[in-house]
Design a protein around this nucleic acid. Structure first.
Lengths: 142, 142
DNA sequence: CTTGACCCTGAAGTGGACTCCAGGGTTTAG
DNA sequence: CTAAACCCTGGAGTCCACTTCAGGGTCAAG
């Protein structure tokens, strides 16, 4: 095989990894402590060294976070991608998350409709005494 | 006037107030520290004494919380009900809250639709390698 | 050789809204 | 008179996902 084929694995320090993933440098160290990132090998001077796989892992975490997964769930998802696990657990985690999202959305929509209703009945001027919003909070009729 | 007319204002201790409002007893003390409840007068033995107005105030807080107001907002709303303020500030707080709720709902709906989409493409069996959910997290094409 | 950018550690702080704890005093039922 | 149930205080702990801090070591440029 050619001498320079897969030999230089493109290493970089924590600062570059953090910048690439658009997170705080301390967040990377935090993820390591939390077990989301593998413990990085060190340079002679004690600096953490990362490679492309770590950058991809950070992207995985970032995307999972935008879907609202907790770090705990993300840790499990990452774990599942490593060993030869079955897809069922991944799907279960995702479905649980969808269900949680739906419940939370329903809660927020209830809040929104009730509050918008009260706000819609408030003229926005005059004394607070008698304001429909305050009245609703003082004594809900339901 | 008759001797027993408006004389006994129906006082009770913190435990009863907490039970009536369905909150932890420590929550009542916490609200006092936070300025949500007025500092209660004390009995001879040093017990806090509450009346009907405090119970109503606790209900106000409870209802505002179910609409998702922060304790800080609730403190301001309570303040506004006391002095001779104008309704405009109340309405502004409510409208801000509605806007925040709407933004949050949109965020959660985005998460839900993306995640449900991926989950819908996952068979739920077979190796994790190739699972559409994991694939999406590993490399989003958008 | 010095400056500045970068990296290291363990520990503590943040925010929001509580909740719990230890070590007491008070009140009431029996 | 005693035991149970209730109340008091200041302070610490909880959850989550970081962020900040103090006090250093390392590395590349000039």
């Amino acid at each position: 095989m050619p001498p320079s084929a897969v030999s230089q694995p493109e290493q970089f320090t924590i600062g570059r990894l953090a910048k690439a993933a658009e997170v705080n440098i301390d967040t990377v160290r935090f993820y390591e402590r939390q077990g989301l990132l593998q413990i990085a090998p060190r340079s002679a001077g004690g600096y953490r060294l990362y490679g492309a796989a770590d950058a991809q892992r950070m992207q995985f975490i970032r995307r999972a976070k935008t879907l609202g997964f907790s770090l705990e769930d993300i840790a499990e998802l990452l774990q599942l991608t490593e060993d030869g696990h079955d897809r069922s657990r991944v799907k279960a985690i995702a479905q649980k998350r969808v269900a949680d999202l739906e419940e939370r959305i329903r809660e927020l929509e209830k809040m929104r409709s009730v509050l918008a209703h009260h706000a819609g009945h408030c003229s926005g001027h005059g004394a607070v005494k008698g304001c429909p919003i305050i009245q609703a909070l003082l004594s809900e009729q339901g």
